[in-house]
């Protein structure tokens, strides 16, 4: 099932910091049902050049505690946003992943935050 989901990650610098968007597309021929344990639909994590976790989007957030379900029809996409406010200068591997309990999709990209912001 997970094979039919394709994820892309885009990172856009804004005044606040970095805006991250995880886009998940159902590239298969059948609808994909995604179940969630709570209001968290996606996770975003940044790992620094030393391999240490520098930031995790969910660390300073709370979520609605209802089970959820989203169905992606063939060809349908869904996008989840996060903001990494004031990231320290450095090079990071940033990963966005779907937080579903029964489907997987993730995308990673290298992000360089310039110094002297």
């Amino acid at each position: 099932m997970a094979d039919t989901l394709a994820a892309t990650l885009t990172v856009t610098p804004t005044e606040e910091g970095l805006e991250l968007t995880l886009t998940v597309e159902n590239v298969g021929d059948d609808a994909v049902d995604c179940s969630f344990a709570d209001g968290q639909r996606a996770e975003f994590v940044a790992v620094d050049a030393d391999g240490a976790e520098a930031w995790r989007w969910s660390d300073d957030r709370g979520f609605a505690m209802a089970l959820g379900n989203e169905t992606l029809a063939p060809g349908e996409t869904v996008a989840y946003d996060a903001v990494w406010a004031s990231p320290p200068a450095g090079e990071y591997e940033v990963t966005g992943s779907l937080a579903a309990t029964d489907a997987a999709a993730s995308a990673t990209m290298t992000v360089v935050v310039p110094g002297g912001r």
């Binding site: 209001g39 639909r41 300073d60 957030r61 709370g62 979520f63 609605a64 209802a66 959820g68």
Partner: peptide, 14 residues
Amino acid sequence: KVLDKRGSGSFSDI
């Protein structure tokens, strides 16, 4: 209202 359209909110807002 402390949670957004997706059902999440920052601890600061909460």
